[in-house]
């Protein structure tokens, strides 16, 4: 099989791309998409470590499945928040939402 560290490199790359997106994209929905990328990087790591370290136990898969739940909940609430803000402020650009600055 492909050595474990290769999966880790891919996951690290995915995570950093996601991080770059979160830090630089101005649209809130795009930021959310980048967060999904980061969550997936985590999932690759979970599954890869499960496969190479403890394939006889099921824990790794269970935790990856729970990450799915968290990702879904995050998307559901996050997008709803963005929509609510959009209705109030007519913008989805993250830096325009500065109500708390005052």
């Amino acid at each position: 099989m492909v050595p474990l560290w290769m999966y880790l490199v891919v996951a690290a790359g995915l995570f950093c791309i996601g991080l770059f997106g979160v830090l630089t994209r101005r649209n809130a929905i795009a930021i959310l998409m980048s967060i999904e990328l980061m969550l997936n990087a985590v999932n690759i790591n979970l599954v890869a470590f499960w496969r190479y370290q403890t394939p006889d136990k099921i824990g790794g898969q269970v935790f990856a499945a729970f990450v799915f739940v968290v990702a879904a909940a995050e998307a559901v609430v996050g997008l709803a928040l963005i929509l609510a803000i959009y209705r109030r402020r007519r913008t989805v650009i993250a830096e325009d939402v500065d109500m708390l600055k005052w």
Binding site: A65, V69, A72, A75, V76, A80, L83
Partner: peptide, 17 residues
């Protein structure tokens, strides 16, 4: 449209479990 998609996402995750 969006509300139906919301409900669906929650149910879809449950179905997979």
């Amino acid at each position: 449209y969006y509300v139906f998609a919301l409900v669906f996402v929650a149910f879809d995750v449950e179905l997979v479990f």
